[in-house]
Design a protein around this nucleic acid. Structure first.
Lengths: 197, 197, 197, 197
DNA sequence: CATGAATGAGTTTTCATTCAT
DNA sequence: AATGAATGAAAACTCATTCAT
């Protein structure tokens, strides 16, 4: 098993270059959503992105680097949403903040279920780069902080349980074809409240 | 996108042949548990199984067929366990049967978390053969029957939610290094009871 | 390019063994007629013949040996027919003997055109064993003798031309789906008579 | 029985790419002429062509695709020659045009007899692509038109007979080591004229 | 910077043949 | 003699990655 270089190669400065990078990431995400990890090949990503394979390798030194970058972006956005959800937690009831958190979670996963599942599986074998590991840690801390603020016992374990259970549940619903975020949110709320009761 | 043949090629009759097939399946499972889907190659499976590549292809026409067969075996065993758990449900309290079900679920997944996760991901892109689809349906029916027997509303949706949430949670715990089945079982119980309350 | 052993391994003496050899040859011929050389595999021949692959190798040391034996049989039968056709040539007109020869040629090829073509192509790369080379030589001699008896100039070349042209023509008709031996025979007669005029 | 993809993969645009494709086709033709179909392997073709196996598969998705393309090229050239031969047929005698046609036929086959035979045999099991089927049809039409212009009865059958008989005869001569095109041409003329008399 | 042709290690898969039972 | 499980060399084919233009 070779250890691929995963840090992005160079930061694009020109507008055209930024567009290429975005096109690559979006193409990869589309491919994952349609066919999963086993259909993700660099040549295909370049083709769908409308750039040459050479250009792709200008910005990403390996296929893993692309995957890692998608994960990083997703995590960064999720962290933002979770932090926004807990921003006012000191002045809010437990239920209100929890609802905000769950809406963020559902929103981040429901509409691209295959993509979510593929990225989740990819995380299990990719050597994530520093930045993404930090993001994951911050996501975890955000949940832990919320739970501890409300005196939940064993907050770290509870946070892990909730995160993985909710991921599973939302993915399951998405793969089964559900699209009604509100309905799913209500069940997620039941799950989380029940577990924490 | 090539559609691989997934039905086993011939049924081994002699004892020696059965041993080969078992060796192949066990080798593949070991490889998945150690390195995940991306390390599963037919040559490597044959090597670990201690058979020649030709022998492997006598019994399985493709890598996908091996994966499919592992999934089928796992599902068959899980179904057995779940059916055993619900056997006496008419004379038992809700909580007692639920506990039996959750013990079966935890037992089936906790000790081979990477294998579980890999198989679960594999299911999402493999065209499962008839038999496995039937097994999955029966597993689902077993849960649904249990829920309906206790007047749970929307039993089908609840069954799906619970199954996917629990799978996520148990995998998450296993990948995090947990091995204490009892502790995990208690949290799983909280999750399930809370959701169904 | 390995030089395969092509002589039959042992001459079957028991009735059962003779039946096995015949079954093998017929199976191979059927397979060639249906799918050509590229579908002829030893395991498939054994399966169609209803014998085990081990039994097949009891009688033929290689795939080439089977092909060679089919060719030998075909050639032996053709030689017989051609010799019968020329038996009375000293007391017959040119046209009468020629007609007999052509009937034999058409009869030997028309009904299994793909088989004929496959064997013909196989001859071009197989190291034919002694016996078959002798048969081919005798076939040629039979034609040459006939032509010389009627004072045809350059009989050896003419014999070769006629044999290969007629083979091509009969195969072409057979592959095009013709089955009317009489009609084809008449055109073959025109071809041969015209060439020799 | 797997159905291989036979359409060329991408059309080479740069000069370098065109050179690669030509090298591949020529290498394959050489290999066929030297050793026949059974010595034609993609790795060997790539080696002889002086390109990597990957390059070969950039342009041809399978061995069959290479064969098909060689056939297509051969047929295209033959059609050109036959059309040139019949261009002035309305102002020429039957014999003059026929001679031109036969020179084209002899010229196209005599010098690469094993290649011709291999391609002819390959045609019998390859699912030819549209373009080659059209070429074959046009070749046939060219002969039929010539025959009909001279009031030959049953022109379609006669065309088929002549084409397959001549192919067989020329191949037979070539495989026997003949290289004198003129001598062969004269015998071909006798054959054709005799048949059509 | 962008392109796309070329590379070749690595995988999958086949099939003639052997050999223990 | 017959069986069929096992073998492994060899063939087909993929795809991440490099590099000349």
């Amino acid at each position: 098993m070779k250890q691929a270089q995963i840090n992005p190669r160079k930061t694009p400065k020109q507008a055209r270059a930024k567009a290429s990078v975005q096109a690559i990431l979006q193409a990869a995400a589309h491919i994952l959503e349609r066919g999963g990890l086993e259909t993700l090949t660099t040549n295909y990503v370049a083709e769908v992105a409308g750039v040459s394979i050479g250009t792709l390798y200008q910005y990403y030194p390996s296929k893993e680097a692309i995957l890692t970058d998608i994960i990083r972006q997703k995590r960064a956005r999720l962290l933002e949403d979770l932090q926004a959800a807990t921003l006012a937690m000191r002045n809010e009831s437990f239920d209100v903040t929890l609802a905000k958190l769950l809406r963020a979670a559902v929103g981040s996963q429901l509409h691209w279920p295959k993509l979510s599942k593929a990225l989740e599986y990819a995380e299990s074998f990719l050597p994530l780069e520093q930045e993404t590991r930090v993001l994951n840690e911050q996501i975890n801390q955000t949940i832990v902080a919320f739970l501890e603020h409300h005196q939940v016992a064993c907050a770290p374990v509870a946070a892990r349980d909730l995160v993985s259970a909710l991921r599973g549940m939302i993915d399951g619903a998405g793969l089964a074809g559900e699209t009604d975020a509100q309905a799913l949110f209500e069940r997620a709320l039941r799950l989380a409240r029940g577990y924490l009761a």
